[in-house]
Amino acid sequence: MATVSSQTRWQIAVIYAVLLSLMCLMVVPLLWTILTSFKYNVDVTLGWIPPRWTFDNYTGVVEAFAFARYYVNSLFIASTVTAVQVSTSALAAYAFARLQFRGRDVIFLGYLATMMIPADVLMIPQFVLMKKIPDWLNVFSSTDFFSGFLFFGDQYIGHPVGLDSYFALIAPGCFSAYGTFMLRQFLLGVSREIEESAYIDGCSTWGVFWHVVLPLAKPALGALAIFTFLGNWRSFVWPLIMTDSDSMMVLPVGLAKLSDLYNNDYGLICAGSVLMLIPMIIVFVLCQRWFISGIQLGAVKG
């Protein structure tokens, strides 16, 4: 027995050593970024620790860029897409998993088939659509409403539709075959007994969905919500090609612009990156369990 425990202790030491060195590889870039964000630009070449600490990069980023606006845009778009996508996916998933109707399997197969279509294929026609929509709509309206600008107080909130509009940034993300598929698979694995007794008690289809199925599907809904939010928070190409004006940009696009305009100002770029990263780490630490179970759920069922 003594040999076993000493061997285990030795093994644990090795495991910790390997993990710690791998962790260093992960952490070094982050540490460098955080330290550099507190440096004056002339000090960037002078070792790791800032010789003079400064907060200028952070104030600089916030002043030179509509950083607060990027944040609000990213949060608003990601949460709207998440809310709508989870709702429409849950409704459709319930129909596919529980209701009997003609053509169900054919439609569902259609959904499945579209899951392997690359985003690049869909984006080109969507881009053309968003570019052309204002022209088409103005054919029907004498006022130039659809190519006009909107304001909320003194904040510019873009066009109603087409390029540079919240509509373009939100609408295409709201419907997901993957979300529908994942929730359907989850519902298929849930026992029907409670639903059936609810029907016997005189519950309507909607009542069963709202009061029985949704609460049961909470883990899957949470997982889908996290994925959708994270995916949207990180998405780059679509918002990049959809936005022209500064006030409509999301965080990644604004950040890319920052690196484009100030590609030699390392401190500024690092400060921008840190500002983008911190909230996500907080969110992750807070809902880590949901993340992990969500990924596993997505994979096992997918």
Partner: peptide, 11 residues
């Protein structure tokens, strides 16, 4: 996996 790819590539 939490940060935008943009931040990673910039760093």
């Amino acid at each position: 996996h939490l940060c935008s790819g943009i931040a990673i590539y910039m760093v």
